[in-house]
């Protein structure tokens, strides 16, 4: 088990390294004069050179990448081209708000997805199953911003039950914040419910059809006991990794959702940075989202290995 944990963490570090390399490579795929881009075409060449020196963008690419790596370790991503603020500060402030939204969405999606999936599996082929599967399929196929417009139209405009902008008054309590975040969270729920439900359903079906379930049935157990003791644990193990990957992708979905609902979060920050070609902020945002995915999958793998005796105790002696 310890060997597995060490190996898995080491792999995650390698992924992190590659991740930073990919982001750096994309950000520098075209040769560019950053100073010129910021100061505009009419600035004096001396001023441009001076700015490039300050930003370090006159250095060879290798040095620039090493600086980025150092930045990851020291949590220092330079300054925003746009505002001149340290990137670290803007990212952390917005990340807090994004996390509130993400956590709320996950707290709603995970139980719904699990219950929905298991329920569909038990009703396999019947109406309830088809409804859940089709809803999940439709929900997860539609982009977040489209789902958001539907919800705004329906719950915000027509029924007028929820605020359509997530701009809660300064100093609001948790309850109020949740109230304001409910609509954006719901549009994320609609999208991510399908993945979790589908995996939970598939896992449950395969566990129901397994030989060990038949063994339990032949012991004379009631169906409820068979489900509780033998099916669920095996069924939901694979769902854990889906939840982890969806957590990562959910942060990606924040881009559009935060823009629409005007959440002061990481996603909106990145879109603004994109419009201003503020690459340090944008790259840092991409890196953070990649790291969130990486950490989520790492935790999921460790959890699975702990729950699954086959990994925890190694293969056949």
């Amino acid at each position: 088990m310890l060997v597995y944990v060490i190996r898995r963490v080491a792999l995650a570090l390698v992924t992190l390294l590659l991740l930073s390399l990919i982001i750096f490579a994309i950000a520098n795929v075209l040769p560019q004069n950053v100073g010129r881009a910021i100061l505009g075409p009419f600035a004096a060449p001396e001023a441009v050179a001076e700015l490039n020196r300050q930003l370090g963008t006159d250095q060879p690419l290798v040095n620039q990448y090493l600086r980025l790596l150092k930045g990851i370790v020291t949590f220092d991503f330079g300054t925003s081209y746009q505002t001149g603020q340290p990137v670290r500060d803007v990212v952390t402030t917005t990340l807090v708000n994004s996390s509130k939204l993400a956590v709320l969405a996950l707290l709603l999606t995970i139980p719904l997805g699990l219950v929905g999936g298991v329920f569909a599996a038990l009703r396999k082929g019947r109406l309830a199953d088809r409804v859940i599967v089709t809803l999940g399929l439709a929900g997860s196929a539609i982009p977040e911003f489209v789902t958001s417009t539907f919800l705004i139209f329906l719950l915000g405009l027509k029924l007028n039950v929820l605020p359509v902008l997530a701009t809660w008054p300064e100093g609001s309590g948790v309850g109020t914040q949740i109230y304001y975040l409910l609509l954006p969270a719901l549009s994320l729920v609609l999208v991510y419910f399908g993945y979790i439900a589908r995996m939970a359903r598939a896992g449950t079906i395969s566990a129901l059809e397994s030989d060990y379930t038949r063994t339990a049935t032949m012991k004379g157990m009631s169906r409820a006991a068979v489900l509780r003791r033998h099916v669920l644990r095996n069924a939901l193990l694979p769902t854990i990794s889906v939840i982890a990957t969806q957590t990562g992708y959910l942060f990606g979905g924040l881009l559009a959702v935060e823009l629409i609902f005007n959440v002061n979060g990481l996603g909106r920050l990145m879109v603004t940075a994109a419009k201003a070609k503020d690459l340090p902020v944008l790259s840092a945002g991409v890196l953070v989202i990649g790291v969130i995915y990486m950490v989520a999958t790492l935790l999921a793998d460790l959890l699975i290995s702990w729950l699954n005796p086959r990994i925890r105790l190694g293969a056949t002696s």
């Binding site: 030989d211 060990y212 032949m218 699954n308 005796p309």
Partner: peptide, 16 residues
């Protein structure tokens, strides 16, 4: 009545 199957590996619950 009781039953014994062809593949004993599959007949036992892997997580218990």
């Amino acid at each position: 009545v009781s039953m014994v199957y062809q593949d004993p590996g599959a007949a036992l619950n892997p997580t218990l």
